[in-house]
Write a protein that binds this DNA or RNA. Sequence first.
DNA 1: CTCCTTATATATCAACTTGATATATCGTTT
DNA 2: AAACGATATATCAAGTTGATATATAAGGAG
Lengths: 182, 182
Amino acid sequence: MPREKKIDMVILGLLSHEPLTGYDMKKRIDGAIRFFWNGSFGNIYPSLKELENNGSITRCEVTSDGREKISYKITASGKEELRKWLRDEQASNELKYETLLKLFFGGVEEKNVTYHNIEVFENKIRGDLEMLRTYGKVLEKDLENEDHLHYYLTVSFGIDSYEAYLKWCAKAKKLLNGRAQR
Amino acid sequence: MPREKKIDMVILGLLSHEPLTGYDMKKRIDGAIRFFWNGSFGNIYPSLKELENNGSITRCEVTSDGREKISYKITASGKEELRKWLRDEQASNELKYETLLKLFFGGVEEKNVTYHNIEVFENKIRGDLEMLRTYGKVLEKDLENEDHLHYYLTVSFGIDSYEAYLKWCAKAKKLLNGRAQR
DNA sequence: CTCCTTATATATCAACTTGATATATCGTTT
DNA sequence: AAACGATATATCAAGTTGATATATAAGGAG
């Protein structure tokens, strides 16, 4: 059984564009990637060591003037590892929405509790959607750029699904209000 | 800091409807809940023991004729624990879509690889959407039933977002094909 | 009637992820 | 010079996942 850590692929993917430190990777993940994947120092740093031992990445710059700083770059074998993963059509896609869980079990509480939970969700989505639209507008201008195109497609996925979420929120709130309140 | 295990809430939520064994719970989760939450024997059984020690649930039927079988029911304090969680507006909602990750880093491979990955995703969604629509049609007939209403809302969320996914798939494939193939 | 397969049922574990915390330096502001 | 936030690496407890182990029951095939 080969290595299964998905964070490895995130790291290799990021390094396929430019050399980065672990800290930088975390920032990239917290930027655009966070909408569909996650990462933490707790798995980035251990993974960096393993990938280095594997020969998938190498240190390309180390500054030890006071604060330690280690930049990594991807190797040829690392790039092949990344490509192999991309060509593997298997992919786990899963949602983990506590809001829906609360909705599903909402029957033991009053309707306004569920109603409120939906509103909180709605506001969060509204904010994120605005952000995604801003990203999208910038990227749209240069889709000829390969990287922009791929980036744009993920942003566009977010926009489309968040818009669907908001429509659903309105519908759900209406359905909840249609019944006798409390 | 109180207990944070979300599986506890799934168990309490399920038991708020009817007594169940751990095995039954897993089946329920694999049915409708799997679209927005997950659970495994690996966290169900340990959680059952802890919830029993807490007094949140009690055994209500144990058969030891050969095969052991333990049914649990929720207690008053367990129900209050569930309600408290429902009233807490904090909720973590996160997507973990490997397909989008592969799309994001797809630039290092040929376009048809990304195209194929989207098609695999599309087919999976199409199948799940059909299933959700079947669920939805049954539930729609009796939304006066409180439990059906909550169940229906989660199914409806799935339908709406999956429809948005499919539209996005078509758009994404077109955009990828618009560029020079390979 | 026995063998085989599948479903029922509980239990456990290694591997992975998460979010918090620890430690220390650097840059900017007060 | 003190305070604060950003940079940077590292580690850990707690939770989740998917697989595996163990054993019984039920149903059908030969």
